[in-house]
Amino acid sequence: MERATEPDVAYRQIMTFNDDARLDTSKVRRAGGGKGIAVGGGVGVVAILLIGQLLGVDLSGLLGGGTAPQSTASGEPLDRCTTGASANEDVECRVVGAATSLDDFWTDTYPSVGDNRYASTSVTLFSGQVQTACGRASSAVGPFYCPADQMIYLDTDFYDALRGSLGAQGGSLAQMYVIAHEWGHHISNLTGTMSAIDREGTGPKSDGVRLELQADCFAGAWVAGASQTRDEAGTAFLKAPTQAEIADALDTASAIGDDRIQERAGQVNPETWTHGSSEQRQKWFTTGFERGATACDTFAADAL
């Protein structure tokens, strides 16, 4: 069953896609029936514990065992999402539009940050639960990237959480920032950074935080270059972001900072941070936006 298009409510920003831009629907699939599309090993502990803390639920049961599948994502194609106009009106089509632009951006940009060849990723939309090469996950996990199958997973209801329990404005560019952040993890995986670091440690200068801030920086680089990404006919996918849209994306980066999340729980403990503070996340998004992807080596930075 298809989700309805979004109502015209206050959080929506100025339309960002050019109406006649042609989108690549192969970049996004919806998992059939809200069930899985793969069988696999343990979901990333960091993502589960962070979102579990935020939502006040125990997600430890999602950490299961198994063997990684050989198959790739399959599911229901989003055939209605072929134009920029559809991305302006429909939240799932907006994911398609973001993925199309991100793939074009990183096809051109990746050689500046990686020694090997760029390989694309894709987004699986789901509701309820999904099976991945990293294990079974529920919608409560929030958006995540699975390095074992090199895919991004998202329940678009997370955008409601942004505007609800997280207190963000959650406009259109903020929604796409979430996808761009996860795509940034894919880039870190391709370059070998993700497999080379210590992902078990926590704290404001830990490798895990540096990895998340690098994804924020890569997201900022895409936002700056998104209006230069084009379809096969040469039509730009996106209009240049407005100051209001950039502020909205920064607002989201702040809302999902570890310190903001811990404030809701009543106690801020920097030594347990896994994603970075609001200030750190905004800083590195801005670094990518202003200086580009080559400035996103958070592992070489003394001051985060």
Score class of each variant (00 low, 15 high):
E232I: 09
G142I: 00
V178D: 07
V268Y: 02
S172N: 12
L250H: 00
G42R: 10
L211H: 06
V209F: 05
F237P: 03
G234T: 12
D251L: 11
V43I: 03
N88M: 10
K27R: 14
P111K: 10
A174T: 07
S127H: 05
A161R: 13
S277R: 11
N88R: 07
T286N: 09
A161M: 13
S101Y: 11
V91W: 11
N189H: 13
I261P: 02
R22K: 15
F105C: 11
L213I: 02
G64S: 13
G75T: 01
E182Y: 04
R199N: 04
T272W: 15
T298G: 03
V46F: 01
L55E: 03
F285D: 09
A87L: 14
L49T: 08
A99I: 00
E263Q: 14
D104K: 09
V209P: 02
D79R: 11
D104P: 05
I261Y: 04
S26D: 01
D198R: 06
A265Y: 14
N269W: 09
L162K: 09
Q70S: 00
A233D: 14
R117F: 12
A303R: 05
T67P: 07
V43A: 02
G171C: 03
A119Y: 08
T124I: 10
N18M: 11
G44A: 05
G64N: 10
D231Y: 10
D216T: 15
V46H: 01
G84S: 05
C81R: 05
L78Y: 00
G257H: 14
G170C: 03
L63E: 02
R12G: 00
L213N: 00
S60K: 10
C81W: 07
T294Q: 04
N116M: 12
T83F: 05
S278N: 14
V209K: 02
R80P: 04
A174L: 09
G33K: 00
D216W: 10
W106N: 07
S60H: 08
E263N: 15
E232W: 08
Q280H: 06
G56S: 12
G65S: 15
P143S: 12
I256N: 08
R260K: 14
G164D: 08
Y177L: 15
L190N: 05
A168Y: 06
M1Y: 12
I179H: 04
F299C: 05
G234Y: 15
Q131K: 08
S227F: 01
E271I: 14
F237T: 05
I187A: 06
I261F: 06
L250C: 01
S74W: 03
T298Y: 02
I152A: 14
I197P: 01
Q280Y: 09
V130K: 02
A295C: 05
Q267S: 06
S165I: 04
W222R: 01
N189A: 11
D149L: 08
F105H: 11
T252C: 00
A161K: 12
G208A: 10
P69V: 02
S122V: 03
A140M: 14
S206I: 00
D8I: 15
Q150C: 06
G276A: 13
D104G: 07
P69I: 00
Y110M: 03
G203M: 06
A137P: 00
K205A: 09
S188E: 13
Y11N: 11
Q129S: 08
I14M: 14
G64R: 09
I246S: 09
M1F: 10
G114T: 09
V123M: 02
D149E: 10
L304S: 04
G170A: 07
Y177V: 13
P111Y: 11
